[in-house]
């Protein structure tokens, strides 16, 4: 000990860490390589699972094999996935069929419909988008992941942005990250939505959930989140935005972040729209390379848009305005 104190202490700590990994992380067992116990231990510490009483209760489920086998929801004409409790319970039987959820993401989600005359029954599902200008976004809110963080910083609009890097649909509403006043303790989106009224809420999440959870769980959680947002903001128009693609080079070399899988999720998300107060739009229409990938000139890291190209997204949103009068109840 006197001659090599550091070496001996280091070796001892190595044994201790390996033992802790072995004892506390049953998932890591079975390997005869000491470093798998160490990485198992560290993974457990970093995602908190080492502190949870029941195993496997982390908010990010391990990649679930059934994500591969999930099919998008069946296309049914009478489907109204959101079931808005505040509007009329009965559906207009003469309304045109709902947009099939399996529709490919590139085409606009809703065909034309006349919104002008206030109808006695429920307005038809289809809603025509209109061109709006920048002032439309003065009461807009952007929520979601790092792509939406970019909207907050580079849109040039006078809107609010509650977005966070790494955001997923699983913690969208209850991750405390919003500082309502400078220096104040961060609050959750759920709380923030009770403090201020918004006219439109644009959501984009989904890229960080790739590779975790099943498609069904993703869509179900998304649906509940939209319902909750609807509860908190009954007058707001909700725009569910399709997940932005990654570039071709990333998609072709990455099993998890492939544009095929993104499209699969987007098709499912399109089914969340009801055409009245919740709409699905897909900005990939203007940002793709024409072959189903994010245009590589618009991104450096294959995943995020460069600041100078956010105007394309803004212009896209300006072409997809929803007149306030016919929205919601």
């Amino acid at each position: 000990m006197k001659k090599f104190p550091f070496l001996i202490i280091l070796a001892a700590s190595f044994a201790v860490v390996v033992f802790c990994g072995f004892a506390l992380m049953p998932g890591a067992r079975g390997s005869f390589l000491p470093d798998s116990y160490i990485s198992g231990l560290f993974t457990g510490i970093s995602n908190g699972s080492i502190f949870s009483p029941t195993p496997g209760t982390s908010s990010q489920p391990v990649f679930n094999p059934d994500a591969e086998q999930s099919k998008p929801p069946e296309s049914t004409p009478a489907q109204s996935p959101l079931g808005n409790p505040q509007t009329e319970p009965s559906e207009d039987p003469t309304s045109p069929p709902a947009v099939p959820p399996t529709q490919v993401a590139e085409t606009p989600a809703t065909p034309a419909q006349n919104p002008e005359t206030p109808p006695p029954a429920l307005p038809p599902i289809e809603q025509k988008f209109v061109q709006v200008d920048q002032s439309y976004f003065n009461d807009a809110l952007f929520v979601g992941d790092s792509r939406m963080v970019g909207m907050g910083e580079y849109s040039g609009l006078n809107s609010t942005c509650y977005a966070s890097v790494g955001m997923t649909i699983y913690n969208l509403l209850d991750k405390p990250f919003i500082s309502l006043d400078s220096g104040s303790k961060p609050v959750t989106l759920d709380y923030a939505l009770q403090q201020k009224r918004f006219g439109k809420i644009y959501i984009m999440v989904g890229i960080n959930e790739m590779g975790t959870g099943s498609l069904q769980r993703f869509v179900d959680t998304y649906r509940s989140a939209v319902q909750r947002i609807r509860e908190l903001q009954p007058d707001a128009v909700i725009f569910v935005q399709g997940i932005l693609y990654v570039t071709a080079s990333r998609s072709e070399t990455d099993e998890v972040f492939s544009n095929e899988k993104i499209r699969e999720r987007n098709r499912a998300l399109a089914g969340l729209a009801d055409g009245r107060s919740c709409f699905y739009i897909d900005v990939n229409e203007v940002l793709s390379d024409g072959k189903g990938n994010l245009n590589k000139d618009y991104s450096w890291d294959s995943c995020h848009l460069k600041a100078q190209y956010y105007y394309l997204w803004v212009e896209f949103l300006m072409r997809h305005g929803v007149p306030q009068a016919s929205a919601g109840s």
């Binding site: 280091l10 700590s13 970093s46």
Partner: peptide
């Protein structure tokens, strides 16, 4: 150094 080592190992791991 002991602390730095394990902090580094942790960062490498995650």
């Amino acid at each position: 150094m002991l602390l730095l080592f394990w902090l580094s190992a942790y960062e490498i791991s995650i």
